[in-house]
Design a protein around this nucleic acid. Structure first.
Length: 287
DNA sequence: CAGTGAATAT
DNA sequence: TATATTCACT
């Protein structure tokens, strides 16, 4: 039975996000508002029926200003009072697009956490995705559960309905490989072998909070690239990388507002360019 | 805080 | 339309 351990691990490893998956996405697009402000949009998108601030894929324009002043100029708190306010938390972020890859990460996290620890917070932490908030995960987690449930109920018997007429709730999930069947089995008796304790992931919260409290300005931190929907997860494997926050570079920017664009910290520790994946993803020791 | 269902926004 | 996010309740 011990062999199984390595087995599942290998498998898991295999499913891990590949290098192509994770990397090149920190290309934070220009904020939609900014883009609009600059009046830059697709040349041949001759069709502005609704002039809303839609986030579209800004052309490959170089993005010199790393000043991600989120275009969201909501209403900053004024008046007030506040001696130490953290306005950044109030920013409304754009809709998060759950790309298959992102979902995969989610699934992986859940799978490894085990049904027991698979709670939004833990998942979120284990995913180590920047900009992901508990709400995001919670919402998605629920949908995911429903999806599993539905699948289970329908897969019995009837003919062949592998995944054809599923309700609309699954397109995303359908593209994502479900590790095993860690469905909801209320079985307090036998636990699946959890080789790894998620404790490592738990402690970081405090650190993170502490860091934030210390005065971590969110000027360019809590943001995930608004990725345009690419969308073609049909049977294709990956289509788009996404946000992965892993290394928090100690960028101390104090005093002079040098908007020196961060040197792309998106580099994960991926493996060599060819060959197997030796990904060291999970233990998110830093955060 | 976490889970669910409905409403809402995009 | 579909999907994500938010809210009220638990």
């Amino acid at each position: 039975m011990r062999e199984d351990d390595s087995n599942w691990f290998s498998k898991w490893e295999q499913e891990l996000p590949s290098p192509e998956d994770l990397m090149p996405i920190t290309q934070t697009l220009i904020t939609p508002d900014l883009a609009i402000a600059f009046d830059i949009r697709s040349p041949h998108t001759h069709h502005p029926p609704s002039l809303h601030h839609h986030q579209q894929q800004p052309p490959p324009i170089s993005t010199p200003s790393s000043q991600p002043n989120s275009g969201e100029f909501d209403s900053p708190e004024l008046g007030g009072g506040g001696a130490g306010d953290e306005p950044a938390r109030t920013l409304k972020r754009p809709r998060l697009v759950w790309t298959p890859q992102l979902h995969k990460r989610f699934v992986d996290a859940v799978a490894h956490l085990g049904i027991k620890n698979a709670v939004p917070k833990t998942i979120m932490q284990l995913m180590s995705v920047d900009g992901l908030t508990r709400e995001n995960v919670a919402s998605h987690l629920q949908k995911y559960r429903l999806y599993l449930k539905r699948m289970q109920g329908l897969s019995s018997g009837s003919g062949g309905n592998g995944s054809g007429g599923d309700p609309a709730t699954d397109h995303l999930f359908a593209s994502s490989p479900v590790p095993a069947h860690f469905l909801h089995q209320g079985r307090p008796n036998s636990e699946h072998y959890l080789p790894y304790v998620p404790v490592a992931a738990l402690q970081q919260q405090q650190q993170m909070a502490a860091a934030a409290a210390a005065g971590h300005h969110p000027q360019l931190q809590p943001r995930y690239g608004h990725v345009g929907h690419f969308g073609s997860p049909r049977n294709g494997q990956f289509e788009h990388p996404f946000l992965n926050r892993q290394s928090q570079q100690p960028i101390h920017r104090v005093g002079t507002p040098i908007h020196n664009s961060v040197p792309s910290s998106y580099v994960d520790d991926l493996e060599s360019a060819n060959g197997r994946k030796v990904l060291t993803l999970f233990p998110t020791g830093d955060d």
